[in-house]
Design a binder for these strands. Structure first.
Length: 459
RNA sequence: GGCGCCAUAGCCAAGCGGUAAGGCACGGGUCUGCAAAACCCUUACCCCCAGUUCAAGUCUGGGUGGCGCCUCCA
């Protein structure tokens, strides 16, 4: 497939380092709160990417970390009067709940920073040995960006320009303003670990280098994350990892665009955000997933409730088609002239995915198939073709993570009520028929009267 | 100041040189005891100017407008 590589700024042919295997690392959440839809975008995008790679037959090792120690974690734990660990445990559990709602599968490994302190310390040790890092009087350790000539290759910045516009904190212990912390000396009331450089905790960037190396090796295929992580986070990861190993760290860097609110970046610090948890109270979270996939992953997308409602309506269109297909599979007859270009849909869908994961285009193909299936089966209810169509739709929806239990059986209790209602309708006893309809709706089922009889489906 | 992105119908959005996918909404229709749902049909010359080309949303240059990174943030 073609994949846009942020490092080369070009679409490249995707060729994994080891044939048939893909190692993929994605920056995960800092677990101090529920995650918002801005966080959700990379989760959904890279989950979809992973699903597609697996669909293509790759054996994918997918690593997504939890940042469970940093300033925000410490502050939030203090405010809530609990330990940092308790805070992390809680929001990691909440992460999995929301992720499940979005149909984001658990990663192969979800490493936690605090459980990899030894690896982090070892990596910092290597960097000091190689002269890329230096300890200070007060017990911090900094990375010396000047010792890594390629610094800036990902973000296209050079050190001189960065410094000219730098708004970095003043710190007299740093040799250079662009140096960044690998290890931070212990402060009162903060969690700390023993290390050769003194008691303290890891800096902001080192965990991703240490943990990706632990689970994917010193070189791996894909590193993903939001655009805003490109600098400085990912730039620093490159400096750390390549500085330590002397080898290329990541083959393909993949960055997703932002979610905007009213055309402004959504972020926790601006306060203009929606958590997935809140949205789950009003919407089917699969609609959130569809919303995310309806634009190309590298483009910024604006978010609003209105847009989410649109996505929910679109999702319903797919569901209705599937239901209809189920009905035809059960009740259809032979129709020799019924035909749909199923192979063509599949080929076009896959071609879209091959082109830098163009899910928007792929969805377009899916909806075309839905429309043509609706037309075809309206007057040619061929059970065989319906079965094949249903199977294709399921297969493709599964790649996008939008699959839903189709052809659910309606419980006898509901069927009995529906039969009673039909009987009442035949006797033109509308009052009774309406009472029975209300009962069915109350039990969570939907009644659809049509030319070919009454259909019942779960709401 | 440095680096970068975007501009397609009422809204969202694909398109990567050959005469504009798809979704939502609106309107029209089919079905229906009513209602709901569902389904079908309908809707654009692509921000402006200049250029390259037989051919340009699609390439180049210049505008205009929006956004992001350079500071914790997906």
């Amino acid at each position: 497939m073609k994949l846009y590589n942020s490092l080369s700024r070009e679409k490249e042919e995707f060729l994994p380092l080891r044939e048939g295997h893909v190692g993929m690392y994605v920056c995960g959440p800092t677990v101090y709160n529920y995650f918002h839809i801005g966080n959700a975008r990379p989760f959904i995008v890279f989950d979809t990417f992973r699903r597609y790679l697996e669909y293509c037959g790759y054996d994918v090792t997918f690593v997504q970390n939890f940042t469970d120690i940093d300033d925000k974690m410490i502050r939030a734990a203090h405010e809530q009067g609990i330990t940092v660990k308790a805070l992390a445990d809680r929001f990691i559990a909440e992460y999995f709940k929301d992720a499940q709602g979005l149909n984001v599968r658990p990663a192969t490994v979800h490493p936690r920073a605090t459980e990899h302190i030894q690896q982090i310390i070892a990596l910092i040790g290597r960097l000091i040995e190689k002269g890329h890092a230096y300890p200070t009087e007060s017990g911090d350790v900094y990375y010396s960006t000047r010792t890594f000539p390629a610094y800036g290759k990902l973000s296209g910045q050079d050190l001189e320009d960065l410094e000219a516009g730098a708004r970095v904190e003043i710190n007299e212990e740093k040799k250079d303003p662009m140096d960044f912390a690998l290890w931070k000396a212990k402060k009162p009331g903060e969690p700390y670990w023993e290390s050769p450089f003194g008691e303290g905790r890891p800096g902001w960037h080192i965990e991703c280098s240490a943990m990706s190396m632990q689970y994917l090796g010193e070189m791996f295929d894909i590193h993903g994350g939001g655009m805003d992580l490109k600098f400085p986070h990912h730039e620093n990861e490159i400096a750390q990892s390549e500085g330590a190993t002397g080898k290329p760290f990541v083959k393909y860097w993949v960055h997703n665009g932002y979610i905007n609110i009213d055309n402004k970046k959504m972020s926790k610090s601006l306060g203009n955000f929606f958590t997935v948890r809140d949205l789950s109270k009003r919407f089917n979270l699969l609609a959130v997933r569809l919303f995310m996939l309806s634009a190309h992953y590298r483009n910024p997308v604006n978010f609003s409730m209105d847009l989410l409602e649109q996505a929910e309506a679109a999702l319903k269109r797919i569901d209705n088609c599937m239901e209809n297909l189920c009905y035809v599979v059960e009740n259809g007859e032979k129709a020799a002239d019924a035909a749909l270009p199923l192979k063509e849909y599949k080929a076009r869908f896959l071609a879209a995915m091959e082109d830098d994961l163009n899910t928007a285009d792929a969805l377009g193909v899916l909806f075309e198939a839905v429309k043509e299936a609706n037309i075809c089966f309206a007057d040619k209810p061929d059970a065989d073709l319906a079965r094949q169509t249903l199977s294709l739709l399921k297969e493709l929806l599964d790649v996008l993570g939008l699959e839903k239990e189709a052809c659910q059986t309606v419980p006898d209790e509901i069927l009995v009520l529906a039969e009673q209602r039909d009987a009442a309708r035949r006797e033109k006893n509308w009052a009774l028929a309406d009472i029975l309809r209300d009962q069915i709706i109350q039990k969570g089922y939907e009644i659809k009267d049509g030319a070919d009889g009454t259909k019942i489906s779960k709401l």
